[in-house]
């Protein structure tokens, strides 16, 4: 049985249903899988999570979580999922411990009962348990929020953009925590606008304007990328970009870190490539064949 099964979900907003948030979305998540929904703001991630956590009704299609229907069995689902909404902030005026205690009681449990599950995470903030949640740093808040979402030992955990606005250090720590949770058998659905986080998931669905572009393992997505991809660099990057954009052989070129990534229509030899780049840009140019990463794939999928 799949932990989550989504079948042809359509969701629109507005009086005349003029805004489409999700257009015919289907996917499945296996038990204890770390599943990433990767896409920019406005892709429909939050709508999808709200439908799965029974907070929203889809226009059509159906979905199950832990085998229960999200419409019919919403009460059953509410007992067994954990959810961290995107804009979720804890009760700022309650202490760390009071927050956790409160959520434990609301979910009919106690901290002690499930301490082993949150121990790893909670221990890091336990020294500050009397501090008000409002006085915690971003990273600590996030740990507390995760502890609260886990306190009733959910079978499926929904994390809506948990790392948005969080700095690189805290993001890294957060993903390490998720990995350990997964080992405890919890199915995790996590959404993020950061493409580089895709590689940390077991499987990902790339989503854009309410449509799924691709579902695969991170490796699989990269392997699906068949076009020749080169990294190019010169002292004048803007000029390089503008010059190469005009060439017929070039399908796409875009900045990528310290390089520009150059997508070609046909395979050519390195020497040949260097040659015609030098024609237009005589300055010292570095050219290297590179393996695509998720972001290259996303860009390519988006443009098709």
């Amino acid at each position: 049985m799949n932990a989550v099964r989504v079948n042809s979900i359509i969701k629109t907003y507005g009086k005349k249903k003029e805004i489409t948030a999700l257009q015919d979305i289907s996917f499945e998540v296996k038990p204890s899988e770390l599943y990433g929904i990767i896409g920019p703001d406005g892709a429909g991630k939050t709508s999808l999570f709200r439908i799965l956590t029974t907070l929203l009704l889809a226009d059509s299609g159906n979905a199950t979580v832990d085998g229960f229907d999200v419409v019919k069995d919403y009460k059953e689902i509410r007992k067994r999922v954990g959810y961290m909404p995107g804009k979720f902030s804890l009760y700022q005026d309650l202490s760390v411990e009071e927050n956790l205690n409160f959520f434990a009681t609301i979910f009919n449990t106690t901290i002690r009962e499930n301490y082993d599950l949150i121990k790893d995470i909670y221990q890091q903030i336990e020294p500050f348990k009397d501090r008000k949640a409002g006085k915690l740093s971003g990273g600590m808040k996030q740990k507390l929020a995760l502890s609260c979402a886990l306190i009733h030992r959910p079978s499926v955990l929904f994390l809506d953009e948990p790392t948005t606005g969080v700095d690189a250090v805290s993001r890294k720590e957060f993903w390490e925590m998720l990995k350990r949770l997964k080992e405890q058998g919890i199915t995790i659905l996590v959404s993020t606008p950061y493409m580089d986080e895709a590689g940390l998931c077991d499987r990902v669905a790339l989503i854009q304007t309410g449509k799924i572009l691709s579902i695969n393992t991170p490796q699989g997505i990269v392997d699906d990328y068949k076009k020749p991809l080169w990294a190019v660099k010169s002292p004048n990057m803007l000029q390089l970009l503008n010059e190469l954009k005009e060439r017929n052989e070039v399908e796409d070129i875009y900045p990528f870190g310290e390089y520009h990534h150059l997508v070609l229509k046909n395979n050519i030899k390195r020497e040949e490539l260097e040659q015609w780049i030098k024609q237009s840009t005589p300055e010292a140019v570095t050219v290297e064949a590179v393996r695509p990463d998720i972001e290259d794939c996303f860009i390519s999928l988006m443009k098709n």
């Binding site: 803007l238 970009l241 875009y254 860009i299």
Partner: peptide
């Protein structure tokens, strides 16, 4: 101040093109 948070990768690059310009 964090001008591109949550923006898709294609638009993010178009945005940076504008910055370069």
């Amino acid at each position: 101040d964090e001008p591109t948070g949550g923006v898709d990768p294609v638009t993010r690059r178009e945005f940076w093109n504008m910055i370069y310009q």
